[in-house]
């Protein structure tokens, strides 16, 4: 299911809304055993730094918006170059704040780096995204980031719980870092491209 209980707060990131949470927990409270059992069953095995992405990652088809065109494709073409997966949603202001920075990085390091803006929010349908893309083209000069419209499978694969969320994948197909937006700095991106180790704090959820 989608990020149901996420709502924008003043802090800028997407935090849970307390009321909903309490209500949900009332449900949980009815049976502690059930509660733990359920959550455990739901826990998705998160990737560790250094793990290689599974074959399903490369094969899954997604709609990709780039330069005003929408194509359907998988991620196989990304192999051999480092890339950044940026999980976002249209309602997430902190995510949108990061767009110019990502565009700038993409412009400067286009030769050695791919950046994919991944949206898995179910209400951000393809028409919504296409409209969003046009808006971005007006807002950001020569906007050319690839927007990936995907389903929850991709989000679940990386156990994304809050956004923005960045997955750094090396040229060898291994996860080099999982971070928040602050860790995406020019120095780290340069190190990432040069294949050097990133020792960034793991964003766990």
């Amino acid at each position: 299911m989608a990020l149901l209980c996420l709502k924008k707060t003043k802090a800028g990131t997407c935090q849970p809304w307390l009321g909903l949470k309490l209500k949900a927990c009332l449900l949980l409270a009815t049976s502690l055993v059930l509660c733990t059992g359920q959550l455990k069953a739901q826990e998705i095995k998160a990737f560790k730094i250094g793990e290689r992405l599974p074959e399903t990652f490369w094969q899954q088809e997604h709609s990709i918006l780039k330069n005003g065109k929408t194509t359907t494709s998988n991620f196989k073409q990304l192999k051999g170059k480092p890339f950044l997966l940026d999980f976002w949603a249209t309602w997430c202001s902190a995510c949108l704040k990061g767009f110019p920075k990502m565009q700038d990085l993409q412009n400067r390091y286009s030769k050695n780096l791919n950046i994919l803006m991944v949206n898995t929010y179910e209400k951000d349908t393809l028409p919504v995204l296409e409209q969003f893309y046009q808006k971005q083209q007006q807002a950001i000069k020569s906007f050319s980031l690839s927007l990936v419209a995907s389903d929850a499978a991709l989000k679940n694969m990386f156990a994304v719980k809050s956004i923005p969320h960045y997955i750094w994948v090396g040229a060898d197909g291994r996860i080099k870092a999982i971070t928040d937006a602050e860790a995406v700095t020019e120095l780290q991106v340069k190190r990432f491209i040069a294949g050097l180790s990133l020792n960034l704090k793991l964003k766990e959820r």
């Binding site: 299911m1 989608a2 149901l4 209980c5 996420l6 849970p16 959550l39 719980k161 809050s162």
Partner: peptide, 15 residues
């Protein structure tokens, strides 16, 4: 079940 997050509890065990 809703996909929930317990942000402010940090790493407290779920139980």
């Amino acid at each position: 079940m809703a996909n929930m997050q317990f942000n402010y509890f940090g790493k407290m065990p779920i139980v």
